[in-house]
Design a protein around this nucleic acid. Structure first.
Length: 738
DNA sequence: CGAAAGGCTCTTTTT
DNA sequence: GAGCCTTTCG
């Protein structure tokens, strides 16, 4: 197969530029993945390079797997030893192997956000700081930001300006110490420690520099400073580094992704070849045009001229619905229509939203209609309590120093070990200067203690029982297969009967079994390696990793997760001020631009059709409030939008007209241009009360069932003589007393 | 010590 | 609306 044959000139240039630094600026759908895989294939097949000398960094494990898959097609089975993975996975592997040089135990565990938060709370406690006053979450993000800028606690001290930052500094210091004591690394540490390793151990760095002749980084616009530094170090010798990105798709600045990396790249590598990929192979002309209009409103950007030879296609549809239920209903019935009338498959559709909470209303509608869907993430599997519990046992087997895991499960299922005893134990461990697990062992032992903690004999017995059980697991770890160890743990702890006592116990147990299936995938590894490989695998999964392609189901997904994916039909729901753009971003110009990029990413996922859907009214955080259309809609010229009458404007954004697409469900939405806006709430509302006779322009006469005030508005429920019961917003609907 | 109930806050996106 | 924490009672 000729690797260059099916590439356009720009793509070909990018593939052939294998010597020296290369920056590829690739618009959406411009065949970026194709370029990366073909580059690697070219290196191996044409240049005869050993896969061992190539590293490719991807954004998710799924992307890594797909790349390997594609490469297998391109080059056959020559892939052994190729390094492909996320920054985090690659760093974890390096540290597992080389960490000792900087004092990292090879059996370190990886702490996720949740674990991190536990440890932070503990740090606060030890420092006698009130978690109410200093929100652990805020400290968490401050520390993560510091780590992303490669600031150690000592560095942070020099930088701290405010009182809060001083607090952060103290917590950071303590937290880091606890991490070390627990032989644990958080996500940021994986990157940071690898950089530290390379900086402090030039001989280790030299080995890696020699090995990796070619480096590739995908989604470069979403890398942070540490990641950039890492690549710079690795590329230090051969300088064959190729980065691919699109500044317009940078949507992770909140995770410290730094667009300056792209700018710095040209500064650090002045000889870098820059290649623009501007031909789009994914979307119709109209979709591309809509997307361009949305993104063009950003100030901070380099103009790109995206173009496509694809058909013009259909205009985008802006849909306005009454509330989120109706929004969901519209989506489902439109999908129903397109599958039954236009022969589309469920797998062709994706529904995208800004926040995970929005999936609820959608799911309910899909369930009601019986339309299969798959939710990317959901209550994320590995964050479920039962999953985390079992994992905590296994982590403790691998690394008994893991305090967070120990504290998590020492009394789960309940063994009569309460908080007070645990505090005493921790206190005692600290005065003895030993890790908690060690303290537990000592306390359980028969010998006399000089100054034992004030724990009741009964509790000590429980503690001893727990310690003995754990010791049993640890002792048998090497002889048991991973699944056998798994079963031993769930069995010996009585975890199943424990779950059985819960309302949703059955479902939870199924999740445990699901986890067991994952563990079983490691059956080919030696018992000594399987556990740590399994734990590492589950620590670094991302939500999209579990997404199989080709499922016959509609995809529900956040806009962030949708990056890198494509679908024939895309619905973006919640096109409202406060949601997209999110209200947290609304008064910061830079963040606002990121929200716009997010919208752009969503639109450019679509191949054939885009629906931009919003609700007049939406319940968020319990209470329902009127919403106005997203400002991003205003940037789309009406000529690019599907027809339909701008009814909302004429009628002041009324109760949308009933339009029956389906006998059972009566969706009430209509298509309008982007121009319509929700009306200003009126403040002098006429009063209605239950029993009043009223008349409505469309629904005729009826009786008020109830009327209650919302924030700036009133919602009136009216039973109409002909049209049934309707909920109406006083500020929208024209209702008059009869 | 544990279970249940009540009250509180905070609600973005995730490797 | 949910999860988290605290309080209260057995």
């Amino acid at each position: 197969m000729d690797i260059l044959a099916e590439l356009n000139p720009a793509q070909r240039e990018a593939v052939e530029a294998i010597n020296g630094p290369v920056l590829i600026l690739a618009g959406p759908g411009s065949g970026k993945t194709r370029v990366i895989t073909h580059r690697i294939a070219y290196l191996i097949k044409v240049c005869g390079q050993s896969p061992r000398r190539i590293m490719a960094v991807t954004f998710t494990n799924k992307a890594a797997r797909e790349m390997e898959e594609r490469l297998r097609h391109l080059v056959g089975s020559l892939l052994k030893d190729l390094t492909v993975g996320t920054f985090h996975a690659i760093c974890a592997r390096i540290l597992r192997r080389e960490g000792r040089a900087i004092g990292i135990s090879p059996s370190f565990v990886i702490y996720d956000d949740d674990d991190q938060l536990s440890l932070l709370k503990r740090s606060l406690q030890e420092l006698n700081l009130d978690p109410k006053q200093y929100a652990p979450q805020a400290i968490q993000s401050a520390i993560s930001a510091a780590k992303s800028r490669m600031l150690t606690p000592a560095d942070y001290l020099k930088h701290s300006r405010s009182y809060f930052e001083e607090i952060v500094q103290r917590v950071y210091e303590r937290y880091q110490k606890l991490l070390t004591e627990s032989s644990a690394l958080d996500f940021d540490d994986l990157l940071l420690k690898t950089v530290q390793l390379f900086r402090e151990k030039p001989e280790v760095l030299a080995r890696y520099q020699d090995r990796y002749l070619h480096l590739q980084v995908d989604e470069f616009q979403d890398t942070n400073l540490v990641q950039y530094e890492l690549m710079k170090l690795l590329a230090g010798k051969h300088r064959n580094i190729c980065v691919v990105g699109d500044p317009d798709q940078s949507i992770y600045s909140w995770r410290a992704a730094d667009l300056r990396n792209i700018l710095n790249f040209e500064k650090d590598y002045p000889d870098a070849r820059v290649v623009f990929l501007e031909q789009n192979y994914r979307s119709t002309k109209l979709i591309l045009e809509v997307a361009s209009h949305v993104i063009s409103a950003n100030r901070q950007r380099k103009e790109k001229k995206l173009w496509t030879e694809n058909e013009a296609g259909l205009p985008a549809a802006v849909i306005e619905t009454y509330n989120e239920q109706e929004e969901a209903q519209f989506v489902v019935s439109e999908i129903d229509r397109l599958t039954s009338q236009e022969g589309m498959k469920l797998g062709d559709f994706a529904v995208m939203y800004r926040t995970n909470a929005q999936s609820r209303a959608l799911e309910e509608a899909f369930i009601r209609y019986g339309t299969p869907y798959r939710l990317v993430a959901g209550t994320r599997f590995y964050e479920r309590r039962e999953v985390k519990d079992v994992l905590a046992y296994l982590r403790l087997v691998q690394n008994p120093s893991d305090t967070v895991s120990l504290m998590r499960i020492i009394n789960v299922p309940q063994r009569g070990i309460g908080q007070r005893s645990l505090d005493e134990l921790a206190q005692w461990a600290r005065t003895q200067g030993i890790p908690e697990y060690r303290a537990l062992q000592l306390l359980s032992g028969p010998e006399e203690k000089a100054s034992p903690p004030p724990i009741s004999p009964r509790t000590v017995k429980s503690l001893a029982g727990f310690a003995a059980m754990m010791e049993g697991f640890i002792a048998r770890r090497r002889e048991l297969k991973l699944v056998e160890l798994f079963d031993l743990v769930t069995e010996a702890t009585g975890y199943k009967p424990y779950l059985a006592g819960m309302v949703d116990g059955e479902e939870r147990w199924e999740n445990v079994l699901e986890l067991r299936t994952v563990a079983d995938e490691y059956r080919d590894l030696k018992p000594s390696e399987a556990l740590s490989a399994f734990l590492e695998g589950v620590a670094l999964v991302s939500d999209v990793d579990g997404m199989e392609s080709g499922a016959n189901a509609v995809t529900l997904i956040t806009l962030h997760q949708a990056k890198g994916l494509e679908f024939p039909v895309v619905f973006i729901v919640g096109m409202e001020e406060g949601l997209l753009p999110h209200f947290k971003s609304i008064d910061d110009a830079e963040q606002l631009e990121e929200e716009r990029r997010l919208c752009y990413v969503g639109i450019t996922r679509a191949q054939k059709r885009v629906y931009l859907v919003r609700a007049f009214r939406r319940s968020l955080m319990g209470s329902s409030a009127p919403r106005s259309p997203s400002r991003f809609l205003k940037d789309i010229p009406p000529r690019l939008l599907a027809g339909g009458t701008p009814r909302a404007e004429e009628e002041g954004g009324v109760e949308p007209e009933t339009e029956s697409l389906d006998e059972t469900a009566k969706p009430r939405y209509h298509i309008t241009t982007a121009r319509s806006t929700a009306p200003e709430p009126r403040y002098d509302l006429p009063r209605f009360k239950a029993g009043d006779h009223v008349r409505h322009a469309q629904f005729g006469e009826g009786i008020v069932v109830s009327c209650h005030m919302m924030k700036n508005d009133a919602e009136v429920v009216v039973a109409f003589d002909g049209a049934g019961v309707k909920r109406l917003l006083l500020s929208f609907a024209k209702i008059e007393k009869v």
